[in-house]
Design a protein around this nucleic acid. Structure first.
Lengths: 111, 111
DNA sequence: ACAAGTACTTACCCTTAAGTAAGCAAGCGT
DNA sequence: ACGCTTGCTTACTTAAGGGTAAGTACTTGT
């Protein structure tokens, strides 16, 4: 059950991080936010294959994990921007290291 | 379907890496292998909650992705060791960076 | 009065990942 | 002859993640 998952996160710091930034959509969302704050509709347009359900679900999770801040202007139509929190900023180097390795390997695969 | 997954991996290098080292068990297996080559039964004992099915399945996937090498001695009972390949070695710094951030954040959560 | 835009929410289904449990091969010690 | 060990494999079941499609609130423009 979830018991094993909890145990893994305590025993393996890499698992802990994967739970925060892993999965199908979170890397893509974070990658988009790395180029600066974006509003909801911008993210939606930037990631055409994502459904609204997945987008909002993962944005909420990223917020709950303290990686992303949400700021809503009380106007109509709504204006909501998402951006890295301070804690989120601290993971950018890690994401860049991952992306760098990924890009190198991707190139190596395609020679 | 898988089409979207393929697309993501091309569009987002972080997703590409997550596909190689993400998921529930792969981080834990890799973390164990970082302390040196291990035989199948050692891994099994080091990760008590993993099932043999999952262990072998992910070891095979890691092999297929070229991150892990398998070496079998033709003896009985079988003697099989798993270790990082050359390509696998190149991801160790990334895994360490992930683990370091994870450990820091884990501490921050528990103050 | 009504369509359009923005940021969601909800209910339902379907595919993928993971867990359960059993079996197999091949020799070695007793 | 029999059980033991090691490294797997297979069939079946269950839980999780993701996709589809519809609806909501609130206001501006026509």
């Amino acid at each position: 059950m979830d018991f094993n998952k909890e145990l893994s996160m305590q025993a393996c710091p890499v698992s802990f991080v994967m739970n925060k930034i892993g999965g199908h959509w979170k890397p893509i969302i974070l990658y988009q936010l790395m180029s600066g704050p974006k509003r909801y509709s911008e993210l939606k347009r930037a990631i055409p294959t994502i459904t609204e359900k997945m987008l909002i679900q993962h944005l909420k999770q990223l917020q709950a994990d303290g990686l992303v801040d949400r700021h809503a202007e009380p106007v109509v139509p709504p204006y909501v921007i998402y951006k890295f929190s301070d804690r989120g900023e601290s993971i950018k180097p890690v994401l860049n290291a991952i992306a760098k390795w990924g890009y190198e390997q991707w190139s190596a695969d395609n020679i």
